[in-house]
Amino acid sequence: MVELENIIVKFLNQEANYSELEKLEDFLKNEGGKQVFNSYVKTQYLSTLSMTEYDVNKAKETIKTRLKKSKQTRRVYLYRKMALAASVIFTFGMAFYLFYNSGQVETPEPEKQPNLIVVGTDKAILTLENGDEVALEKGKKYQTGKVSSNGEELVYADKGQSEVGDKVPLYNYLTIPRGGQFFVKLSDGTEVWLNSETKLKYPVKFTDGISRQVELIYGEAYFKVSPSTVNKGAAFQVLTKSQEIDVLGTEFNLKAYNNDPVMATTLVVGKVKIKKGEVTETLMPNQQATISHESDKIDIEEIDVSQEISWVKGLFSFNEKPLVEIMTVLSRWYDTEVIFENAKQKNFVFTGILERTKAVEDILKLIEATSEGQLKFEINDKTININ
């Protein structure tokens, strides 16, 4: 079976020789062989490509046209027979898709411009206590002292508390650029997920018995706070430019981007106290507190927290959101600029749950399809124009 799987891979990659093609052709003559072929291709290839808008019939016609132009050698003839067999058993047309893109035909293709807008990934800049900066990214390991990273997360040694009376605490900064995300586990066991365009300040070690304090300088972060009961009663506090959040042991989302009109704190589990100036409010689970930068007023409302924290689970969740807010979220994740040609387009409302792993083109096509002709997206380099 391993040999046949290798032949299938070679066929799809246009590398199978004459004898291998004959073996595969014989293998596909029985129903069991067809099922194995179909299952293997789906498992190995379909999961990595979006087939939601794949036009099988169009691909077939394109292949027929190109095959007529190709040289009528034995190799080309056999590949055509195999492609026809594959089309019968692989209803999704995956084999045709790979065959179509394999570059067999000698007909020159116009050069395609590279896609400059890519999906966000795990990456961050760690600023150490001495000012040195370390780039963290997938596939790149880093370790020094009691902190280590595998390229997808940053972990400080558990229970790295300083004794009362020690010298001034040392701080690290973790900066997430546009098009990035990262996870950090602080020395007290608190877990923090950081969204694109975010910066967090925190001590390398918390002082034993004193309130644990971190600062969200800007951006969005989801906190799963280590309870005070395992930290000798020390409470946990998150600071922003204009508010303080006191917690004991809880999970909450804090969004405080510089260019957003309000800051939003969403409580998932536990209990938090929010302070802005002289105003203090207590937040309960499934509630969100919003604060304007120009006012000390704290507004609290009941919300569906699953939508607010969907980004932690790898999703975009938009519930009747205006397009201007949606494009702000997308521009941070895909590191792109957005231009509205008409101000009215900003008010277009969209509802949907989408995967953050999708290409931006797929998401824009879906939004465009629901607009009934009101919207048209065009991508130029790293800019999305909305007409």
Rank of each mutant, 00 (worst) to 15 (best):
M1G: 04
E3F: 08
I7W: 00
S19W: 14
N30G: 02
S47P: 00
V56G: 05
T62M: 12
I63V: 13
L67H: 12
K68F: 10
T73H: 01
R74I: 07
R80T: 15
M82H: 05
A86M: 11
I89L: 11
I89Q: 05
T91V: 11
S102M: 10
P108L: 10
P110C: 03
V118Y: 04
V118W: 01
V119Y: 06
T121F: 05
V134R: 03
E137S: 14
K140P: 00
Y142L: 05
Q143W: 02
G160P: 02
L174M: 03
R178D: 04
Q181L: 04
V184R: 00
G189V: 11
V192S: 02
L194K: 03
P203G: 10
V204L: 10
V204I: 15
R212H: 10
Q213P: 05
A221L: 05
Y222E: 01
V225W: 02
A235I: 08
L239S: 13
T240H: 01
D246V: 12
D246L: 15
G249H: 11
K271Y: 05
K276R: 12
T280P: 01
E281F: 04
M284P: 00
N286V: 03
Q288D: 03
E294D: 14
K297A: 07
S306V: 15
S306C: 09
V324D: 08
M327C: 09
W333P: 06
Q345R: 13
T351E: 13
T351C: 14
T357P: 02
V360L: 14
I367S: 03
Q374V: 08
